[in-house]
Design a protein around this nucleic acid. Structure first.
Lengths: 111, 111
DNA sequence: TCCTTATATACGGATATCCATATATGCGTG
DNA sequence: CACGCATATATGGATATCCGTATATAAGGA
């Protein structure tokens, strides 16, 4: 992650912000879990995750037919602090509940 | 300040981000001081400050022919935390130096 | 190999953002 | 009132962003 303003622009989209806050809460998720939790189209989620990957904010890892995403381990402390502050402000309750109600979650299966 | 993503969008522009970090450091500044410190055109600075005002992020106060800006007192804690984290990440040294070298600063004069 | 599922990308259009330039407003002074 | 300085806004064009739809790629299983 380069400069703060690029990071803030990444967080200025509701899809991307929710993806990142979900990752903070859950640690690691695959695309179909984002799609279910956020109730958005697959291309939309995939495009935004790809954007976050290109910026070095998240890291992807293929496991069989699934691709798992997590926060990039090299994310600087100030970026973590920003995400933490956003997490305070954002509800996120209903979204995490919808994720929990997803049947046959791939992340739960493997490890 | 309503939601985090609107706040992040406001911070995603370099002009606005620098204005806010300058306000964090200096407390209160008038438009011509921003113009001098950031070396940008007056309409550009004024437009971005107006944007921040409309969002409830800063507060303006006319003092004679000058208009002073400061962070909005009602800014929630999480927004302060975000600005604090950005302040850590951003250098800002040269900019504050350029401000300090400004002759006849209006903010210093009155109060 | 064929089919299914999961994920990624390409395309085109609608909308938003940002800027420079020009002009308007507001205040203080003579 | 006329002028000068500080600040705000309007206009138009260039560029970026975001989306839905359609399609491409990749892996696993029959």
């Amino acid at each position: 992650m380069r400069d703060p303003e690029t990071f803030f622009r990444a967080l200025s989209d509701p899809t991307r912000l929710r993806c990142l806050l979900l990752l903070m809460a859950e640690g690691r998720l695959c695309v179909c879990e984002f799609v279910h939790a956020l109730d958005l189209s697959q291309p939309r989620v995939s495009r935004h995750l790809g954007h976050l990957r290109d910026l070095g904010i998240v890291l992807d890892e293929r496991r069989g037919q699934w691709v798992h995403y997590r926060l990039h381990p090299a994310l600087p402390q100030w970026a973590h602090d920003v995400l933490e502050a956003a997490f305070q402000a954002e509800g996120l309750r209903d979204i995490r509940q919808r994720l929990a109600s997803m049947p046959d979650r791939p992340s739960a299966a493997c490890d």
